[in-house]
Simulated scan of single mutants.
Amino acid sequence: MMRERPKAVSLTDSAAERVKSIMASREKGFLRVGVKNGGCAGMEYVMEYVEAPDAMDERVEDKGVEIVLESKALLFLLGTQIDYEVTALHSKFTFNNPNQTDACGCGESVTIIPVQEA
Rank of each mutant, 00 (worst) to 15 (best):
V50W: 05
L89S: 14
A16M: 13
G64S: 09
K72Q: 12
C104K: 04
E66V: 11
A41W: 01
I113K: 14
D57M: 00
Q116D: 14
H90E: 14
F95I: 04
D54W: 05
L78Q: 11
A88W: 10
E117S: 12
C106Y: 06
I113Q: 11
R5T: 11
L69A: 05
L31G: 11
A73W: 02
N37F: 03
F93W: 13
M2G: 06
N97I: 05
V65L: 09
G34Q: 04
K28D: 01
L11Y: 08
I67G: 07
I67Q: 02
T101P: 09
I82D: 03
K36N: 04
D102F: 10
L77Y: 03
L77W: 05
V110W: 03
C104Y: 02
V65W: 11
S10N: 10
Y45N: 03
S10H: 03
S109R: 00
K28R: 07
Q100E: 07
N97Q: 11
E108I: 08
E117L: 04
A8H: 09
S109D: 01
A16F: 15
R18N: 12
V33H: 03
V50K: 07
E108Y: 05
N99T: 08
L69Y: 02
F76I: 03
E27K: 02
L31R: 04
L77T: 05
R59E: 13
V50C: 08
Y49Q: 07
E61D: 11
L75K: 13
D13W: 15
L74E: 12
K92V: 15
E108H: 04
A15W: 12
T94F: 00
G29Y: 00
T80Y: 13
